[in-house]
Simulated assay, not measured.
Amino acid sequence: MTHAAHDRDGPADARTVSELVGTASEQLSRLVRDEIRLATLEMQEKGKRIGKGAGLAGAGTVLALYGVGALVAAAIIGLAEPLPAWAAALIVGVVLLVVAGILALAGKKNVQSATPPLPEAAVHGVQEDVATIKERSRRQ
């Protein structure tokens, strides 16, 4: 039996360097694809949170504008009419501003939870993979 025939028929440990490089290349390619897939999913999730936060902040801003409008109307009515008319507008304006503040804080919290817009789990996975590869290469 020739040496080449023994390599093909022998145990898995007797694989050639080119076979080992090919296997490592396949595994690395699969690993990179999986990490890219994970990063994509993570970025989609963060994008959704940013969108929700921006929507809440926008709603808060619109309500704040209505609140300012109501306060302006209250000032005008207060100068032109007796107390009950402007007091009612003032109360509505304050309530709108309080609701706007709550929505703006909720939006800010959502945006902050989605930043930085990096795929943190994927980055951590790649760092672990690199550390594992370095460790295994030192053993050999």
Rank of each mutant, 00 (worst) to 15 (best):
G47V: 01
V123M: 12
L90K: 07
G107S: 02
R49P: 01
Q44V: 15
A75V: 15
K46V: 00
Q112P: 08
G55H: 09
Y66K: 04
A73T: 02
A74K: 00
K52Q: 12
L63D: 08
K108D: 14
G67A: 08
G93Q: 00
A75H: 05
G51R: 13
P117F: 10
R49L: 15
G125T: 09
P117I: 12
G53I: 02
M43P: 06
V94D: 03
K108F: 13
K109F: 09
A121H: 05
A114N: 05
K134T: 03
L63R: 10
V126C: 08
G47C: 04
V98A: 13
L63K: 09
V95E: 04
V126P: 06
T132L: 14
I77Q: 12
E135Y: 06
V123H: 05
L65A: 14
E135H: 07
V72A: 05
V123G: 08
K46E: 00
E45D: 10
L83K: 09
P119V: 00
K52I: 13
G78P: 01
I76W: 06
P82Q: 04
V72C: 02
L65M: 15
V95Q: 06
A122Q: 06
S113H: 12
L65W: 15
W86C: 03
I91V: 15
A114E: 01
L118Y: 11
G78D: 01
G55F: 14
P82M: 00
L65T: 15
Q112C: 07
G69T: 06
L118F: 11
I50H: 08
V98C: 07
A73S: 05
E120C: 07
N110T: 12
K52R: 14
A104Q: 13
A54M: 14
G47E: 05
M43E: 14
V68N: 01
K46M: 02
A64I: 07
G67D: 01
L63V: 11
G47N: 07
G107V: 05
V95C: 05
A100Y: 12
I77M: 12
A122P: 03
G67T: 04
A131T: 10
K48F: 07
D129I: 08
P117N: 10
A80P: 07
R136F: 12
L83G: 08
V62I: 10
G69L: 08
L118S: 10
L90G: 12
A114H: 06
A87E: 02
A74P: 00
Y66D: 03
L103S: 06
A89M: 01
L71R: 11
W86F: 11
A87D: 02
K134P: 00
I50T: 07
V111M: 06
V123F: 11
T115E: 13
G107E: 06
L118D: 14
A74W: 01
R136S: 14
V62E: 07
K134E: 02
Q127H: 08
T61I: 09
L103D: 04
V92T: 13
A89N: 01
P116C: 04
H124C: 09
D129A: 14
